[in-house]
Design a binder for these strands. Structure first.
Lengths: 204, 204
DNA sequence: GTCTATACAGCGATAGAC
DNA sequence: GTCTATCGCTGTATAGAC
């Protein structure tokens, strides 16, 4: 593995574990048995490390999305898609946990992240709208409630990482939260569908 | 105002605004036109500042809870109660935004915070159970789904502060999120109730 | 590319004068 | 109580030898 990549890998590990502010170039370098001077040869400053990790994140999350674009309406596929997205987000969780720190340092990341989420919201509204047309969702759910559901979805995907401690979640994080998020739709379903979905999501 | 209190007030302001790690005793002192030495006369170290602010938070949030304990089942009261809680949490938002940093420094706060939330979950389950018995909630909602709803509630109250940027919320934060959280219950209601509640929550 | 050495700034905290 | 002065440490980043 190239030195550059080793540094990136270790930086990601420490950003996720210790947080962005507590992670230092000294610390990263020494964990790799490398001098700090050498690290700064490869990455002139800490922000460049963050920037490159963010670019990697965007690349992976875009890949995941593209992959399932056409199969998105079947409930098993929606669930699997969420699971995949969540696992990528989990890998780069410092971007969400320390979002304020990161955004303060690099405002371009803030912009890109908000755009990403706006795109997600549009997608989710399409799915919901599809379910309403197919009579999978109940007919008495108002438009504003559908809008709300999409907001709740965005809220969930951005917040789940911080919440795991509060909820006492330890293992299988991405899978747990994919179900957690998906489960929010249960009461919107018509009765016949509800049983199927509840089965898919398994007992809590 | 006593010097002690001035320091606490400024510390809270900076913790909320800059984050705990970026806030320094130097910074707090100079904002008050006071020497750093003097600040350290009143608070020997930074952790004592955090600790005292946390104690104030606990005192206020407990007060708020006690106050409406008996009226908790009417929907208007539940909403008002949430609004009050959220506004206290907002005042001490660094405790939630920087929860990992704070918990790393003072594990006693982690313990107390998790207990507080566990209590909240119990309360919310009581309310839900009450609504089910009163036939305000639909009868076809499973027990595990009720449990889930309580978890979602805890998830919401702990995460809303970080999410406002993602959702584009700017003003009236506590009121907005009280409704946001409450609105999650809409699809669980029987049809007749749904209209009343939707009116209470207003158009999005 | 990788190292050592070092400059420089900022932090928490303490000592001692007033 | 409040101040100034200072210590010891840790952080980012650069310079120059190999």
């Amino acid at each position: 593995m190239r030195t550059r990549d080793k540094i990136l890998k270790e930086a990601l590990k420490q950003f996720n574990g210790l947080g962005v502010e507590k992670t230092t170039t000294r610390h990263i370098a020494s964990a790799l048995g490398m001098s700090q001077g050498n690290l700064h040869y490869h990455f002139a400053n800490k922000d460049l490390l963050i920037k490159e990790l963010f670019d990697n994140f965007i690349q992976k999350i875009t890949e995941v999305r593209k992959y399932e674009y056409q199969v998105l309406f079947k409930k098993e596929d929606v669930l699997a898609s969420m699971d995949l997205s969540f696992s990528v987000m989990y890998k780069y969780r410092f971007l969400f946990r320390d979002n304020e720190t990161v955004w303060r340092r690099l405002s371009s990341i803030k912009k890109a992240m908000l755009e990403l989420l706006a795109g997600r919201k549009v997608e989710i509204k399409q799915i919901i709208s599809h379910y309403v047309k197919q009579n999978i969702f109940r007919p008495d759910i108002s438009d504003s409630q559908q809008e709300y559901l999409a907001d709740q979805f965005v809220f969930n995907i951005t917040s789940w990482l911080n919440a795991s401690e509060y909820l006492g979640v330890t293992k299988q994080k991405s899978n747990y939260f994919a179900k957690f998020t998906f489960r929010q739709w249960l009461p919107y379903l018509v009765s016949e569908e509800m049983k199927n979905w509840e089965e898919l999501l398994g007992e809590k």
